Each structure stands twice: as C-alpha cells, then as structure tokens.
Computed example of a mutant assay.
Amino acid sequence: MEIFSIQPVGASSLRVKESSPQSDVRLPELSSKVANSREAEVFEEALSVFASMTPRRLREIASESFQRQEIDADTYRELSTELPLQIVDRNGNMMDLSTLTDDSQFDYAEYYRTQQSLAEMIGDMDMAGSYAKVLDFFSKST
C-alpha cells in the first residue's frame, strides 16, 4: 500500500506576502487623522444627549424641531413613531422593549446607529438614509 501526502489545492495562493513596514509617514496624513478623530468625538458627545431620553421627550423635541423647520417630515415621522416591541442589536440578539413606557429612559443614539448599520448590511439604503438623517439631527441638536 502506498501513502501519499495530502496538499491543499491552491496552497501557493494562500501564502501571506511579507510587506515592508512603511517608515515614511508624512505630517499631513497624521493631522487629517487627528481632525477626523476630533470630529468623531464631537459627534459622540452630541449623541450622548440622546443616550438616555424618554420617548415622550424625544417626541416633544421632534415636534418642536419640525415646527421650526429644522427637520423634514420623514425625520419627524421616524422620531415620533413608537419603538417596536422587539429589536435586533448589532450582534443579532433580540432585545425586548415591551416594558418600555413613555417615561422610561432609552438609548436612542445607539438604537438609531444600530438600525442604520443593519439597514446598510441588508442593502436598504433608503432606510439607512432616513436613520442617517436622524443621527444628523441628533448631532446638530446639542
């Protein structure tokens, strides 16, 4: 009986190529990254206001903003619509929202970020765009 070694097909294409470390870092590249991180930090600070808000208060803010023409009708509708009884988080876990009342604190910033990410993942760019408008409103409202 003869024994042959088993080699995966296309093994040569799976090899990792060595890359030389980049030693030439330019100052403009670093400054743009610092500016981007500062913008992200400001955005996160703005969203923190909506990280612990009651549904009643969010509807009040949405109504006032719509009357001042700061948001369009679609954004107003998204903000004033009641939350579903269950939602899916970023990890695919179901969260029960059936006990949420008008006076319960809720993290709307995380909810809309998650919904935007999920809409983008499934390719529903219209919904992702409406969630992006809500997040943009959140960032401008502080």
Results as ranks from 00 to 15, higher is better:
4 F>P: 00
4 F>S: 11
8 P>L: 11
9 V>D: 09
10 G>F: 03
11 A>Q: 12
13 S>E: 15
13 S>A: 15
13 S>H: 11
14 L>I: 05
16 V>W: 05
17 K>W: 05
17 K>F: 10
18 E>R: 13
19 S>D: 11
20 S>C: 07
22 Q>K: 15
24 D>L: 14
24 D>M: 12
28 P>Y: 07
28 P>H: 09
29 E>A: 13
29 E>L: 10
30 L>W: 05
31 S>L: 15
35 A>H: 11
35 A>V: 12
36 N>Y: 07
37 S>M: 13
40 A>Y: 04
41 E>G: 00
44 E>D: 12
44 E>M: 09
46 A>H: 11
48 S>Q: 13
50 F>W: 15
52 S>W: 02
53 M>I: 06
53 M>P: 05
55 P>N: 06
58 L>M: 13
60 E>F: 05
61 I>K: 12
62 A>T: 03
63 S>M: 06
64 E>L: 09
64 E>Y: 03
66 F>N: 03
67 Q>H: 06
69 Q>D: 10
69 Q>V: 09
70 E>P: 00
72 D>Q: 04
74 D>W: 01
75 T>C: 14
75 T>I: 06
76 Y>H: 14
80 S>M: 01
81 T>K: 12
82 E>F: 08
82 E>I: 01
83 L>W: 02
83 L>V: 01
87 I>K: 01
91 N>P: 00
91 N>Q: 12
91 N>S: 10
92 G>Y: 03
94 M>P: 00
95 M>T: 04
96 D>L: 02
97 L>M: 07
97 L>T: 02
98 S>R: 10
99 T>C: 00
99 T>V: 04
100 L>Y: 01
102 D>A: 14
110 E>N: 11
110 E>H: 09
113 R>S: 10
113 R>G: 01
113 R>D: 02
117 S>E: 13
123 G>W: 07
123 G>V: 05
125 M>C: 00
126 D>S: 10
127 M>A: 15
127 M>D: 13
128 A>L: 07
128 A>G: 05
129 G>E: 09
132 A>T: 08
134 V>Y: 05
137 F>L: 06
137 F>Y: 12
140 K>H: 13
140 K>T: 06
